[in-house]
Design a protein around this nucleic acid. Structure first.
Lengths: 211, 211, 211, 211
DNA sequence: CATGAATGAGGTTTCATTCAT
DNA sequence: TATGAATGAAACCTCATTCAT
């Protein structure tokens, strides 16, 4: 069912030729640019095509409708974040729990800040395109990676359960979102990141005791 | 500046007569209903008026434009949440820190769940109506109430700083949002609430030590 | 099923105010004008609205889409024809069969020629709007009226069966259509009409003998 | 004038090579398939090319535009019908009038039913491509063949005039169309065919007496 | 004050056609 | 010759907003 619902947002054709790949990339990038400069409600397919330097028709060759374009951009962004998190989890295998948590928080904040503008812009369109459903898939991947990582921690005993991990990620996302939307400075972000590390570490420790 | 930007969203006239108050209430409620049943992008002023049982013209007597209506609904919801939190903070004066945190987390989760549908619905329109700005005001009030509360805690030493409190609230909001959007059951919400209590308590304790 | 399929073509709201009725009439008339002057494929809702002296939005207040507008015009025309035929049938009650047939052929040709331009124009759009289904309803009414009429004929023995009547009407329609599309002169139409009378009379007589 | 107007619909190049002939045939057949499965307004050149297993570009090598393709298909169909009728007329030379009429009605119904789907499908596009003009040419050929045939009838005296023949053909076409559009069963078609024979015979006999 | 018909700018989407490869 | 990516004019339709009644 969820799959069916999402199918309407799937890209129309996969670019096989070099020319096409460039075009698709340009369209996605243009969508982000327009989102940033005009806002979600002023984002029109015509404007995106214009900014991408192609005609509207071309845009519609690759995306069956406006929503599918935004969903693709959204998914792409989430994909980068998720992959960065997976990499961070893998890299942290075998470390003590506290170090693990520090590393993934840092990785999360870093990847988000790297394209902070996009993150903020995409919050705007999330609801129009079945954002929560896409997020859910991303969360599953992250949870899986975190699980695998935690099992290699020498001092994670007992292992945190699923709920604990989900709550931790949700807290991270929430703090990050608030921070991004408030337009925080680099220094503030650093402080916030440290707090987030502390939050995760203390919460995980407490959760271990409490269970 | 922020004030000017927001002025466009202010309601047009204050209902002084009983009849008007009823009408305004009906319109707001209708807006929520439409949001829930049709989604943000299918919400039209005509549809809202229809559902409220009045004509479009009447709607425009009370709200100068669509955004002001949505902003009013959004603000109203946030107001309820904020007031509930202020009340909870006040009520918890003088208690030990852990109890305080438990109480406000419980209050937060309860008030959000009370009209969970509205919360979810409003996430959709938040960005179109300067949501973050409205949220910021709400956060300020909550921080103020929390500050006042914490100063009466016998065991809060040192007092948590502003960043700590903000991070805590942001974490709470993030976890709550994820939970609401995942359509969690009552039982899951209870579990999540307990986790959130744990999170806040452990984080506050750790923050006190760390500073 | 047929009803459901047609429901998409139903007018959107019934005009209750005097102003509206005028508007609706203007739109229908404009649709015919555009059909005549530009042809079916050049008929756009914008053009129709322009010709009617209203805005596109107004057009869409009364018809949910282009097809429903054309279907309404089509149905209206068919209605006039059908009513004229019903009247002619009724008027011919009690006459000898040959006179009956002459009268209804004359009535048919006359009513079609009266707005010959519209008839021709509507052939163009018939298929886009479920024309055959609408026609079927009209035929049923005409068959019923013809049946009632024939039963009062002193010399119709045996009474023609349903197939015979349907074939006769189909033949009439076919001849009429060919004639209209060939842009025949008034004199040619008169001749054709006489032939059609002859055709119906001879066919009915033969059918009576043959059964 | 008519010639000029039609010139835009002429095929672009005559397929001289075997490969081309196959391609053209595939395109025509695909056009019919699309017409049947999607309807006239959903028929796009791209879709036709797809179904034919060639690229749009190739389609445009053989037909200068969409209309010329449809016109070609239409004309081709009419051609088959006309040729079948000419053959039937020729074959009936020298027979009594009643037999002649029976034979050509049977031939007409048979050839139409042979590809009933195409007939119905083509009614849809007839108006977009100057259908009546194409039909007129076909009718002329059929009239000529019928004339030649009738002159060999031992019992056709006086010979029916042009109007009579035209009316007869128009009646045949009208009855056939109504039948096809109503989706009649094979049995119904047989009955209708018998009626049509009767109609033509009686009408021709009456026309002979009346003149 | 309430109504709801009218407005029309502007958004999304389609599709016949071309042309560089 | 065949391909199919690109084009962009133009179609359909929506909906926030106004204003005469």
């Amino acid at each position: 069912m969820a799959t069916n619902a999402l199918s309407a947002f799937e890209p129309r054709k996969t670019p096989v030729q070099a020319r096409s790949a460039v075009t698709v990339e340009a369209i996605c990038e243009a969508a982000i640019q327009v989102l940033l400069s005009h806002g979600a409600d002023k984002l029109t397919t015509t404007r995106v095509a214009e900014r991408a330097g192609v005609s509207v028709g071309t845009l519609y060759q690759y995306y069956p409708n406006k929503e599918s374009l935004l969903a693709a951009v959204f998914e792409d962004h989430l994909n980068r974040v998720t992959m960065a998190m997976e990499a961070a989890c893998k890299k942290a295998h075998g470390q003590p729990l506290a170090d693990m948590l520090r590393d993934i928080v840092v990785a999360f904040v870093d990847i988000k800040m790297e394209r902070a503008d996009i993150s903020v812009a995409l919050y705007q369109v999330s609801s129009d395109i079945g954002g929560p459903a896409i997020v859910k898939k991303s969360i599953q991947r992250m949870r899986k990676a975190a699980d695998a990582m935690l099992q290699t921690a020498p001092d994670a005993d007992p292992l945190p359960d699923r709920l604990t991990i989900d709550v931790m990620f949700a807290a991270m996302a929430g703090v990050m979102k608030t921070m991004l939307e408030s337009g925080a400075s680099a220094a503030m972000v650093r402080n916030m990141r440290d707090q987030l590390v502390l939050l995760c570490q203390s919460y995980m420790a407490a959760a271990a005791l409490g269970s």
